[in-house]
Computed example of a mutant assay.
Amino acid sequence: MTLLTFRFAPSPNGDLHLGHAYSALLNQQLANGNQARLLLRIEDIDTTRCTPEFEAAILRDLEWLGVRWKEPVRRQSEHFGEYQAALERLIAEELVYPAFMSRGDIRAFISDRERRGRDWPRDPDGAPLYPAVDKALSRKERNARIAEGIPFAWRLDVAAAMARVGTGLSWMEFENLSLSTARHVPAQPQDWGDIVLARRDIPTSYHLSVVLDDALQGVTHVVRGMDLFHATAVQRLLQQLLGLPQPAYFHHRLILGPDGRKLSKSLKDTGLAALRAAGATPSGIRHMVGL
């Protein structure tokens, strides 16, 4: 019998806020209610913004909340070799290509098209799709640019990937907290265009590392915020391409700020440490997030 496994996977690039508290506590509640294990993963592939100080703060906040997890903690920065091996496999299968356009190049290309009256397609988050001009380059031209030291990222050729896996890609999404009712959601990764699978300075990306981590850690249930609902389509595609097991998903409601937007570390929303210093208690935090 498969041991059910949940995970909480924060990035140590800022203080945890109420939204993180809700997700961590909900994962623990579901794990306890299903005789499952809860794992903690530190998603620190961005070695510039992620720091040991923020990681230590995350551990303090979770321990204060009463969240308990199975050791060891997995840190993505310690597993770049595993992500690189998966990337090399996709390169060998010609499912990715080197993309040389910088952010400035992309903005200029799209602005030029929009000035000519073309409505440029956007992904589910509202960002413009990558122009994929590099995909038309010959192998000789690609190799010449790489040899010249021109920076590039590896992007998934989503058309080639979809041709490889065929139609009918979907994921199982639970519809309630009891995990008793589920539906199959059609996955449309093409809506994201040719996403980055390895950045210029890091041999992986969020999508690539997270699907490998979930598989290697035996995660059976991914419980995370609704803001990642549409991104699941990309991850299902990668799972299919790499022959990885498919977890079941539950995308929970978001904790919103007074202005109605989702809480964000980047916008310096009040962190758990500040709430604790102001007198908040773990039970008070649970009440604040509706648990």
Rank of each mutant, 00 (worst) to 15 (best):
L3N: 07
R7Y: 08
R7F: 03
P10D: 06
P12Y: 09
H17F: 11
Y22D: 03
L25A: 15
L25D: 12
L26P: 11
L30E: 08
N32S: 14
N32V: 13
N34G: 05
N34E: 12
R37C: 00
L38V: 01
E43D: 14
T48V: 14
P52Y: 02
P52R: 05
F54W: 15
D61R: 13
L62W: 15
E63K: 14
E63T: 14
W64K: 14
W69I: 00
W69K: 02
V73N: 03
Q76G: 02
S77E: 07
E78R: 15
E78K: 15
E82N: 07
Y83C: 07
E88Q: 15
I91Y: 05
P98L: 01
A99E: 03
R103Q: 09
I106L: 12
I106E: 08
R113L: 14
R115P: 02
G117L: 03
P121K: 13
R122I: 10
R122G: 11
R122L: 12
D123R: 01
Y130D: 11
A132M: 08
A136F: 02
N143H: 12
A144C: 04
R145V: 12
I146W: 04
I146D: 00
A147G: 04
A153R: 04
W154L: 12
L156C: 01
A159L: 12
A159T: 13
A161M: 15
R164V: 02
V165I: 12
L169W: 10
M172H: 07
E173Y: 11
E175Q: 09
N176C: 05
L179S: 12
T181Y: 10
A182E: 08
H184Q: 12
V185S: 04
P189H: 09
D191A: 15
I195A: 04
L197A: 11
L197D: 02
L197W: 06
T204E: 13
S209W: 11
A215T: 02
L216M: 10
G218W: 09
V222Y: 01
V222A: 01
F229Q: 08
H230T: 11
A231Q: 11
T232S: 15
A233P: 01
Q239L: 02
Q240D: 00
L241M: 07
L242A: 06
L244M: 09
H251W: 04
L256W: 11
P258H: 10
D259V: 10
D259W: 12
R261C: 04
L263W: 05
L267G: 00
K268S: 07
D269G: 08
L275C: 03
R276V: 07
A278S: 14
S283Q: 14
R286V: 07
